[in-house]
């Protein structure tokens, strides 16, 4: 039996679900950020699978753009985390709960 499209989509959904659970249950902002990266990667897997099973390259192009934007987003997000750490001396999401300090 060959691997079907739904198998790839199920794996992608499982990875997304793990990332979602991580975002909800972890308190460390760095780990929350890592879980977000995992969710982005899960969507990439779904797009690449659709791309192959429809024999169209557009999905892969979209994954390329997602990876580029994710790299930029990680740089900005980590800079924000460092700036927050300078002010509050913590990376716990429980203690970073004010919009203005």
């Amino acid at each position: 039996m060959n691997i079907a499209l739904s198998d790839y989509l199920l794996v992608s959904a499982a990875l997304f679900a793990i990332g979602l659970a991580g975002v909800v249950m972890r308190r460390n902002t760095l780990v929350i950020y890592m879980s977000l990266e995992m969710m982005l990667n899960a969507s990439n897997l779904a797009l690449a699978a659709f791309s192959k099973f429809n024999a169209a390259l557009n999905g892969q192009i979209l994954v390329f753009f997602i990876i580029t934007v994710a790299a930029a987003e990680v740089a900005v997000g980590l800079a924000i985390i460092v700036a927050l750490f300078r002010v509050r001396q913590t990376v716990s999401a429980d203690e970073i709960n004010l919009m203005k300090y």
């Binding site: 989509l9 793990i18 979602l20 659970a21």
Partner: peptide
């Protein structure tokens, strides 16, 4: 939340017509 998302996705996949072979 994670488990609910996965089960939901699984239910959707089971009732959708996807291309089988590449």
């Amino acid at each position: 939340v994670g488990f609910a998302f996965w089960v939901e996705f699984w239910l959707i996949l089971r009732h959708s017509a996807l291309p089988v072979g590449a």
